[in-house]
Simulated scan of single mutants.
Amino acid sequence: MHSAASRVEAALGLLLRRTTRANLYDNLVEDVEGVDETTYPVLSGIARLEPVSSTRLADEIGIDRTATTRYAARLERAGLVRREPDAGDARSTLLLLTPEGRSAIDSARRKVVDRLDGIVAEWTPLEAELFATVLEHLVGKLRTES
């Protein structure tokens, strides 16, 4: 029998696999012009952190800075992201969402919630609440330990 911790580790491993994320991102952005599985993490990261430099964004989302900059440029050409000078560092620019970018990320997040609603609808309300609480606790502990 496997311990609870080893079961969590195995499940997290599957959840964090690139193929799992790519499948999720593909579904989220299928109707969003200018966003695909490679640019979605950048768009989502900007939404969480804006205004943000490419360097900080790259650190936060785990994509190297060169790729992050390239993906941000694609999002900028699509009208979803804009750059502005960093008042604190004349050599740097900050990334922000345009209104179209905000709309795109809001749409993608609604799709995630809808998909998760469909999954947890098969659970009892107690199971769904317990899972959400435990997941929030686990993520909180992992973030404070890193």
Score class of each variant (00 low, 15 high):
M1T: 09
A5E: 13
S6I: 03
V8E: 01
L14V: 06
R17M: 07
R18S: 14
R18E: 15
T20S: 15
T20G: 06
R21N: 02
R21W: 10
N23Y: 12
N23H: 12
L24A: 11
V29A: 11
E30H: 13
D31R: 12
D31F: 02
V32Y: 14
V32I: 15
E33P: 04
E33K: 07
E33Y: 08
V35E: 14
V35K: 15
D36H: 11
E37P: 01
P41L: 04
V42W: 04
V42P: 03
V42C: 06
V42T: 11
S44M: 01
I46Y: 00
R48G: 10
E50N: 05
E50Q: 07
P51Y: 02
P51C: 06
V52W: 05
S53K: 11
E60R: 07
I61S: 11
G62P: 04
I63H: 11
I63D: 10
D64Q: 09
A67K: 15
T69H: 10
Y71A: 04
A72C: 02
A72Q: 02
A73M: 03
G79Q: 08
L80W: 03
V81Q: 09
R82M: 13
R82T: 14
R83D: 07
R83A: 01
P85A: 13
P85L: 08
P85N: 02
P85M: 13
D86K: 06
D86W: 08
S92I: 09
T93V: 14
L94P: 09
R102W: 05
D106Y: 07
S107I: 08
R110P: 05
R110W: 11
V112C: 07
V112E: 15
V113H: 03
G118P: 13
G118W: 13
I119H: 15
E122M: 09
W123A: 13
W123D: 12
L130N: 03
F131G: 03
F131K: 00
L138Y: 08
L142W: 02
T144L: 02
S146Y: 07
